[in-house]
Nucleic acid binder design. Structure first.
Lengths: 228, 228
DNA sequence: CTGCGCATTTCTGTCGACAATTTTGAGCAG
DNA sequence: CTGCTCAAAATTGTCGACAGAAATGCGCAG
């Protein structure tokens, strides 16, 4: 152990709890803390150079976000997800993202639609580059769903999709190896969704988005990797 | 102040943080802590007879559940919700409860359908009693949505609807005076939803549930009180 | 060699205390 | 009487410490 000890020293005026939450979240998603491994409070406190107070508050938030599971008086462990869990979560995501797309079609301004189109053009350009997959997985795909949620004009929905559930989605992708194996096709689906939004066709936008998410869910069940 | 000081003394082996979270949630929903009022940590710690450690963890959870808002270095205040916030939340609830109803129609066992019918019969019976409204608001309505979510066989969805969002829904009903003014009609809608589930008509169950929630949302906009 | 019991160690849950910042409010100028 | 200044009080964010419970690991019986 003690291999790194990435302290929290950046003279940041953000609260310690928030910094810890972000670092712990990232470590969990990236697999630095393996699924099922225990998060010992004294060890983490020493590792990050903080006391257990703020650390415990950060862990509480991890628990609330379902990134760890707590056994009373036994500490917390990185959540271990089953394929069925992933199925459940993506089913929820399907209706929520569908709702966001519907709202986007109803409320997007012309400027926002232009911005969506510009973004997709950038994505198409990037897909022909060498490291296309890593860019797609890390940035492009998230950007699209992020923007749709924002354009939907439902702050609560945005918070859920892009804040509270975002890291959990990433964790499920990691634990179940849901890599975007069909980025080309996913991009095409994104373009069709934006077209529907541009046409102010709310119903179509919702349906296309739901199918888009569902395709990832289906690929997940088949264990072959989805497009999202 | 200091009028009551309901200590936490029940020799409960549950964690202090959990007890505090429940008591604070209840106090917020019931209006004991007025919307917008500040939650002072030293005052609450004295009032409940605990130290600030577990209290802060409970407050973090309140924050995560959107029951309070935090201004860094200024403490937390009971959330003040706008009618638009309520609209946003009920829009989300509409698709989630619709999803739960669809899943319920797909996965309910015959025994569960019997149990649903039995419950509705009990509710109809209770609606002819003197204190019908208070029973409806406090118990019957919640029981129905609770059971639908459970029968849906999606643990994540159940947790969201009956755990993470449940108290928030109650808070919105409180702050916006969304009283069940049409319990009779709401019960009829419940019965139709159960009939659709019994017929294994998932699409109809989802549609009826969405309309059922939407009617509450509409009544909310009209400020006349919804049926749910 | 394997499995059980017990002592040691570690960890969680909780508490009290300190520093820095924010809020309060008294005093004074206009 | 109103508004600004500045000191005092209160509050947040953080830390270290202690008690009880859980996990660990050793010794010993079988």
């Amino acid at each position: 152990m003690d291999q790194d000890g990435e302290r929290v020293e950046e003279a940041d005026d953000r609260l310690l709890t928030d910094q810890l939450f972000e670092q712990l979240s990232e470590a969990i998603v990236l697999g630095t803390f393996a699924p099922g491994s225990k998060l010992s409070e004294p060890r983490l406190a020493a590792q990050y150079g903080v006391s257990r107070g703020p650390l415990r508050e950060a862990i509480r938030r991890l628990e609330e976000r379902k990134l760890v599971t707590r056994a009373p008086r036994q500490g917390v462990r990185v959540v271990v997800t089953s394929p069925n869990d992933a199925l459940e979560l993506f089913t929820i995501r399907e209706v929520l993202e569908g709702l966001a797309a519907r709202h986007a079609a109803e409320h997007a301004t012309d400027g926002e639609i232009d911005a969506l189109r510009t973004m997709l053009a950038r994505h198409r350009e990037a897909l022909s580059q060498p490291d296309a997959m890593v860019y797609w997985q890390a940035t492009a795909n998230s950007d699209f769903h992020f923007m749709i949620a924002r354009v939907g004009r439902n702050q609560h929905l945005f918070d859920v999709l892009c804040g509270e559930y975002y890291t959990l989605f990433r964790l499920y992708r990691m634990q179940h190896r849901i890599v975007p194996g069909r980025a080309q096709r996913a991009l095409m689906e994104h373009e069709r969704i934006v077209e529907a939004i541009s046409d102010r066709d709310a119903e179509l936008a919702e349906m296309l988005m739901r199918r888009h998410i569902a395709s990832a869910r289906t690929g997940l069940v088949a264990q072959t990797g989805g497009a999202d």
